[in-house]
């Protein structure tokens, strides 16, 4: 049986979680004080996910960069792949907040959205 340690970020409390795993199967979550914490621990131990925010090159706007973000959390393991794809993106202004810059990035089912008008 494997044990993994995490600090829970489901709320600002920061509980210290211990997750017991059998292979990729969560056996037990310890140290949580609420349901959200238990779910967080199980997710972290198996497929940790994060929101990703970065910038892409923009032409014809007030600034040379457009801030963008993922429409939902993406697997941590895919972060570098997503960043590599976004490094080659070059968009032309005007752009509106919420515009889809790229659909289904790196086969995650998640879109890349513009964070602002530019």
């Amino acid at each position: 049986m494997e044990e993994k340690n995490f600090i829970c970020t489901a709320c600002p409390m920061g509980c210290k979680l211990i997750v017991r795993l059998d292979g990729n199967e969560v056996v037990q979550v310890l140290g949580h004080r609420c349901r959200r914490g238990e779910n967080y621990g199980a997710q972290e131990a198996t497929t940790p996910k994060r929101m990703l925010a970065t910038t892409v090159r923009a032409r014809g706007g007030l600034h040379p960069l457009l801030p963008v973000y993922t429409s939902a959390e993406v697997p941590k393991a895919k972060m570098q792949e997503i960043l590599a794809i976004l490094r080659d993106v070059d968009i032309t202004c005007p752009v509106k907040m919420g515009d889809v810059i790229l659909k289904d990035i790196a086969d995650t089912g998640v879109d890349i959205l513009a964070s602002r008008d530019l």
Binding site: M51, P67, Y69, M97, S115, R116, D117
Partner: peptide, 10 residues
């Protein structure tokens, strides 16, 4: 919602 800073401002 979980927004980036520029979207919150926008």
């Amino acid at each position: 919602e979980d927004l980036p800073g520029p979207a919150y401002a926008q």
